[in-house]
């Protein structure tokens, strides 16, 4: 359960900035992704984000994500951190 608004990552080059906010139960995941490489990798980035959220058991959340060309492991790490902070576990 995401309890509070939280951010992770940076807006610097090769990184990704994740903002996560609570959503009502049953609302599902709403993802607003902006990426400098959206044309080439948009669906792949989205897939990584959805997979990571699923692994972490997050079913309902609103995410705003700004990507500046992060690699997959960075994306995973940033999502995990944002979720931890959103759950208040940090």
């Amino acid at each position: 359960m995401i309890k509070q608004k939280a951010t992770a990552g940076t807006l610097e080059s090769s990184d990704i900035f994740v903002e996560i906010a609570p959503a009502e139960a049953g609302a599902g995941i709403s993802l607003d992704l902006t990426s400098v490489v959206y044309q080439q990798f948009g669906p792949e980035i989205e897939a990584v984000i959805y997979d990571t959220l699923k692994e972490l058991g997050v079913a309902d959340a609103a995410l705003t994500v700004k990507d500046r060309g992060a690699v997959d492991c960075t994306i995973r790490a940033r999502i995990e951190t944002a979720v931890c902070r959103g759950k208040g576990e940090e």
């Binding site: 951010t7 940076t10 610097e12 080059s13 900035f17």
Partner: peptide, 19 residues
């Protein structure tokens, strides 16, 4: 030097703390 990225990260975080 991507100073803009560093600065903007900070400003967005501050703004995000503010509802």
């Amino acid at each position: 030097e991507d100073l803009l990225g560093k600065l903007m990260t900070h400003l967005v975080e501050i703004a995000s703390e503010k509802y």
